[in-house]
Design a protein around this nucleic acid. Sequence first.
DNA 1: AAAAAGCCGAACCGTACGGTACGGTACGCA
DNA 2: TGCGTACCGTACCGTACGGTTCGGCTTTTT
Lengths: 219, 219
Amino acid sequence: MAQTVLTEAEKDSLAVFTPRQNAVLETALRLLVEGGGGALTTARIARAANCSKESLYKWFGDRDGLLAAIITYQASKVRVPGTGPLPETAAAFREHLEQFASDLLTVLSGDVSLALNRLAIGQASRDDAHLGRLVLERGRRMIGQRAGVLLEAGRQRGFIRFDSRDAAFRTLYGLVIRDFHVRQLLGDTLLPEEADISAQAKSAIDQFFTLYGTGAETP
Amino acid sequence: MAQTVLTEAEKDSLAVFTPRQNAVLETALRLLVEGGGGALTTARIARAANCSKESLYKWFGDRDGLLAAIITYQASKVRVPGTGPLPETAAAFREHLEQFASDLLTVLSGDVSLALNRLAIGQASRDDAHLGRLVLERGRRMIGQRAGVLLEAGRQRGFIRFDSRDAAFRTLYGLVIRDFHVRQLLGDTLLPEEADISAQAKSAIDQFFTLYGTGAETP
DNA sequence: AAAAAGCCGAACCGTACGGTACGGTACGCA
DNA sequence: TGCGTACCGTACCGTACGGTTCGGCTTTTT
């Protein structure tokens, strides 16, 4: 048997479930988005995915295992975008930050993200918040990773200045997201101005540079 | 029958439910905090509150009405603190803002707030997000009201400058809360530095003044 | 005092869910 | 050809929940 070398990301995205199981999880995800957490019963999943409940329990153990598998599957689908060449100019760095903010707003307001977060939050009081920790771990990894690399690159090139990268990231997150996420989780409808994600991103990055800029970023 | 004059706030806080109903709702709130949304069944509430299910349905209609009543009851308990005399000096204004930020962090990380938000978010996909809108309306009113008065006072006295009071408030909210709220909703444990609420509040207000200050607030 | 109303505790009903068991079928393999 | 394995579809079971009904007790009203 040939031993192939896989990165961790590839192991995560390919080797966790069989294709058939992935198809079932995809169907479950669609059910979740369409009907909310209440629609995610084992019988409905089995019917919609053309599989048997027996197989569900054989593959995923119990309902909690199935929910965890759904989260893991969704995380394996999302690739971190735009981690390509790091910006070398101030303008490019600002552009990267705006793109990051825009991507973050887009992802968090997506149907799938909202449905999964609602599911995990709704069950956070049971199970020692098992699903919640899973969402945080899987969702935060790519966000924090990409933001960390970006912020560090900006600092080393003198575009921004900060003491704690973690604190700088949390400020960036707050400026970008504000109460956007929680309000959408609660089902609120957005203001017209909030629907313009790129404008929101640009405004937030402007404020971020006011707080953390060195002056080298405004020509 | 003597006609007494009540303010809207007094009507909200006193005249909505009878004392007996308030006691039942208080018990339901305790059950919710202790056991999460799943523990909030009609049978359990009736048993814990020493009342009958028949009374629950007579008073609140159905389960959704009961949940809505719990949210309304909790909102009626929370009084807006510190809306007393408006600050006349820059130092007092900064102090007021820090107190507001500290109160906001304290309230949002409280057991009751987290439990109610989890409940509303978990059901946001059903009922046209009825509970979610109720939480937003009842919870946002006092926060936005207090912050709006404070920001407007600061602007009129020249301590801060902004075009849109709404945008300024959302920025303030983002700087103070960051991902604090969502992470706690998901069951995350806070970092040691995040547990120091007053330090978090002070740091956030410093950043807020950097963005919106006029220079008149730093002597 | 009698009637009415409000309420409690418990029993009850229909439904829906999580989880299991069973018969039947397609496929890989010796 | 026969056997094992994996799977599907369905039926089934126990439980729990939302909601209703009923008998009996207490308080209020007339």
